[in-house]
């Protein structure tokens, strides 16, 4: 998002999730992606949310993979060990299309390393026996 290079000035509209009100915040971005102005937020929490979301939005990714050799479950739940860039979310699940876990699996076990070049591991969030 706006990393380096001379771009054009632009506005970005997002919905604040810090409270149920869901303010529609308009962020005016400068040519280099820097925040020039912010409007629509009803409180300071909206300001901080919008700045973070514009600068480097990140998301946790959760999904499941098959559990080979397990007697109790067909699949184990997994998540990214930490948040990944929002733009990489679909790359993460694509990279997991061929990933399988082998029982036994404990919560926290690493199921895949450095998924989709994000530098983030995929860890199990459920067990398989």
């Amino acid at each position: 998002m706006g990393a380096g290079g001379a771009g054009k000035k632009s506005d970005k509209v997002l919905t604040c999730i810090r409270c149920p009100r869901g303010c529609r915040i308009t962020v005016a971005l400068g040519a280099d992606g820097e925040v020039e102005a912010l409007s629509g937020n009803a409180c300071p929490r909206g300001d901080s949310y919008a700045r973070a979301e514009v600068a480097a939005p990140v998301r946790m990714v959760t999904t499941t993979v098959p559990a080979d050799g397990a007697r109790d479950v067909a699949r184990v739940a997994v998540k990214t060990a930490r948040e990944v860039p929002k733009d990489a979310v679909l790359d993460v699940v694509r990279a997991l299309a061929d990933v399988r876990a082998t029982a036994p699996v404990e919560i926290g076990d690493v199921v895949a390393r450095d998924v989709a070049g994000t530098g983030v591991d995929i860890v199990a969030t459920s067990r398989a026996r």
Binding site: T63, D87, D91, R94
Partner: peptide
Amino acid sequence: TDKDAWAGAPAASGAPG
């Protein structure tokens, strides 16, 4: 099945956002 559309296929359209 889950992710069968992703398996072996190049990245399709639609990045988040």
